[in-house]
Amino acid sequence: MVPAGVALAGDMLSIHELTKRRGSREILSGLSFEARPGRVTAFLGPNGAGKTSTLRILLGLDSATSGTALIDGVPFARLKDPLTKVGALLDGSGAHRSRTARAHLRWIAAAGGIPPARVAEVLAVVGLTDDARRRVRSYSLGMSRRLGLAAALLGDPEILVLDEPVNGLDPEGIRWIRTFLRERAETGRTVLLSSHFLGEVAETVDDAVVIHQGQIVAQGTLSEVVGEHGTIEDAYFALTGAPRGGLR
């Protein structure tokens, strides 16, 4: 693990005063935080807190009402080689159900100017080599997530942005992704993962940002966020006021 505050050559994600309004509803209210190279940053909050909205703005899918979300100082939409800079996993597989996994990854590689040989490599990394010619509609939830992750890894990116990466994975898959993300961070890369599922977070992350109703309620290193609450779980419930029974 790289200690906090050490500047690395890797790439930083910085969100500054981000606000998003849909109609009269304010979904995000002045969010500011960073995800630094060499560290795994968890973006925590209950469902509907604004995690996905923040990540969508960061990836240029939605526009912000005000504020900025920058990748190494540049908005995502201005990146020329986005796949080598940022690998992204949002919910589902991001693939059309009637395409094969291989065809799906091939067009993404083509779009990113990535050699087609890389497709077989990422399929092997996520353990889908034997299912590569099957149509995505026949995939289990866990396999769909692995395919989404394979797409994120195509460009061997400096930064990974993962929305609920352990959702739908079996215990073996969860264990695998934990190790994988730690390894990415240890080679100086930036990992930002969102989660409403607390179990897997504590062992994997260095930093935590807790969001509740569109506002950040705590951020810092994991131990700073846990503070006097005892465990990350206690801290989470105290900070978000979420009902205890409502979460796994």
Binding site: L59, L61, A77, R78, G94, H96, R97
Partner: peptide, 19 residues
């Protein structure tokens, strides 16, 4: 419209962000 099935549009725009 096939872009809007399975969330493929997100994959497209992450690979080709310039609309």
């Amino acid at each position: 419209t096939s872009e809007y099935q399975g969330g493929q549009i997100r994959t497209t725009l992450v690979a080709v962000p310039r609309r």
